[in-house]
């Protein structure tokens, strides 16, 4: 009995250590801490089918994810912290839908931040894209980041958070041992574009130029590995994220980054409406002016123009 207790105590202690490690900065004494990630994936109420399908796609891609039911509140997001703790998750991916059309995705490292809020656009789920690619469910993806991710501090934070969320940790419970897909994260136009490709190894085609040379070099190093070439086939989903804000804590704390280039979709829509309305207003003004001009001439209500100078034909020849 005592032995059982001892072993249990040990494991629980180790778990605690992991969590503590997360909290502390820097590396632990062993050099690299264990990459232990669990992601709580959930949405708010009022998501559209497309948002839901995207969430399902992402959940299918992440064997270390834990999908939960819709979260009821949009204002008390700090409650998510408790929820994540309940499920033993140290990451939260929260889909917040507004007005049944706009999707905001929150990425948060749970115990103590940071939190990033993104606006998601151009959502295309796996199903609707009809791509030919396919991969093992739960295989570990290669995460390919754009070089731009290393330039700015906020992008570096985003990269780190993506690594935790989308990268399947080594030895995750339902992960598969082979690597057959790559996720691409690129920064363009101030947005982050996310793509997912299958890696298909095909017989090598001769005469590819510099790529070939590189390959040959590698072949010398890696032995028989490079008899095949790699071609990528897209799997899906596709989406584009615009970072809006970053908070220091998990769903709280001071804001440490705000994107000034982000324009709220509400604002965009209102501008559109206004520009449309301006046409109507202009027309209205014109009719009013017309009426006023007519009234000035005494032509109101279809009256015939009356010459007051007394030179009207009807008066002259009456």
């Amino acid at each position: 009995m005592a032995a059982v207790y001892k072993s249990l105590a040990k494991t629980s202690k180790a778990d605690k250590m992991d969590i503590d490690d997360d909290a502390k900065n820097g590396s632990s004494s062993s050099g690299v801490r264990k990459n232990k990630q669990r992601v709580l994936i959930l949405s708010s109420r009022g998501v559209t089918y497309r948002h839901r399908h995207l969430l399902n796609d992402l959940a299918a891609m992440l064997p270390h994810g834990r999908k939960d039911v819709k979260f009821d509140s949009k204002s008390k997001l700090y409650q998510l912290n408790e929820l994540a703790e309940l499920y033993n998750c140290n990451n939260v991916m929260f889909f917040e839908a507004r007005k049944g059309k706009d999707l905001y995705i929150w990425f948060s490292k749970v115990p103590n931040g940071p939190t990033i809020k993104f606006h998601a656009q151009n959502l295309h789920t796996m199903e609707e894209l009809h791509f030919q690619g396919n991969c093992l469910k739960g295989s570990r993806p290669i995460l390919s980041f754009d070089a731009t991710f290393e330039t700015e501090p906020h992008l570096r934070v985003i990269k780190e958070v993506f690594t935790h969320m989308f990268g399947v940790p080594e030895g995750a419970r339902k992960s598969k041992p082979f690597i057959d897909h790559v996720m691409g994260f690129s920064v363009a136009d101030g947005k982050i574009w996310i793509r997912n490709y299958e890696i298909r190894e095909v017989a090598k085609v001769k005469g590819e130029g510099e790529e070939d040379e590189e390959e040959n070099k590698k072949a010398k190093k890696g032995g028989d590995s490079n008899q095949t070439d790699i071609s990528l086939i897209e799997i899906g989903p596709r989406f584009v994220l615009t970072p809006i804000i970053m908070q220091e804590g998990a769903f709280g704390g001071p804001i440490i980054y705000e994107n000034k280039r982000f324009i709220s979709p509400n604002h965009v829509r209102s501008e559109l409406r206004r520009s449309k309305a301006s046409k109507h207003v202009a027309r209205q003004e014109q009719t009013r002016d017309n009426l006023a001009r007519k009234r000035k001439l005494g032509l109101e209500n279809g009256e015939v123009f009356k010459d007051k100078s007394g030179l009207d034909t009807r008066e002259l020849f009456a």
Binding site: R140, P141, I142, L143, S144, F145, D146, A147, T148, F149, E150, T151, K159, T163, G167, V168, I179, S186, V187, A188, D189
Partner: peptide, 10 residues
């Protein structure tokens, strides 16, 4: 499993 590209994609 993360790699950073050699040149910015943009």
């Amino acid at each position: 499993m993360t790699l950073v590209s050699s040149a910015p994609t943009e």
